[in-house]
Amino acid sequence: MAESEKKAPALHVAGLKKTYQKKGSPVTEALKGVDLTIESGEFFALLGPNGAGKTSLIGILAGLVAKSAGTVEVNGISIDTDPDTAKSFIGLVPQEFNFSIFEKVEDIVMDQAGYYGISRAEARPVCDQLLKDLGLWEKRQAKAQSLSGGMKRRLLIARALIHKPSILLLDEPTAGVDVELRRGMWEFLQKLSGSGVTIILTTHYLEEAEQLAKRVAIITKGQIIEQGTVKELLSKLNYVTLILDTKEPVKDAALHLLEDMGVKRIDEMTLEFNLSPGQTVNDAIRRFASTGIDIMNVRNAGSRLEEIFMNVIEKHK
């Protein structure tokens, strides 16, 4: 490939709409014109509250949900003109368990290989390796119903990777997984990302998006309302919120002097304010000191991304 020839993005979505219409129930506009481009090799997180349209979007990409309008290209292949090729690039880890609990763990993975056109002989070593990497080796002969919730999640991941997809879609993969296991899963995904697989993950856990993804999009009510690198989002919407515990009750007069900083009183001895762009914590503390307020303690008001997230969602209510 010539240097100038740019590789097609892993995913290119334009004007994507989805309306659910069921007899007897109101029409739901789950996606209202989504535009999204994800480059090959990216680790991308899609953040959004319940009902935002994440699963609908993932479902369309994977070929499970029929779109109402718009275009989707997977590695440059349109899902309308060549859906089968487009599907072959993708591995899907769905939000809900969708394997038969009466089947054996390794059968679930091996049969999926067959559906992707991979012979059993070829799939065997890949299957074994995945089951080992995901801590399911001991359970390979067990029926899926005997797995714990976390194991079932990992089975979904093993099944999604059996055909070595170049794009992995994960719909809330760490829902119901304990902290230790979640970290293990993160490590696994980071390693996978390091090997060049494009990863797109939806999540409610902002920490997860912040930890893993280079780029994040926030989706709510069927629309992407913010997207960019985690850094960009943080600087664009500077919401470093600090909480200060004071030594003595704060006088109204002192607070008045700090009006330009947007300081709010939470209770007698607790203040909250947003650090503005370019302002350092030192600057801020000096200002407080100059008005006679003694600071005992400074705390961060929570995950930064969480703050952005809540603010942005709030604005779009």
């Binding site: 969708n98 559906y115 992707y116």
Partner: peptide, 12 residues
């Protein structure tokens, strides 16, 4: 039980 999705996501 939704495992029809195993077939639907495949390129078959």
């Amino acid at each position: 039980i939704k495992n029809i999705e195993e077939l639907l996501v495949s390129p078959m």
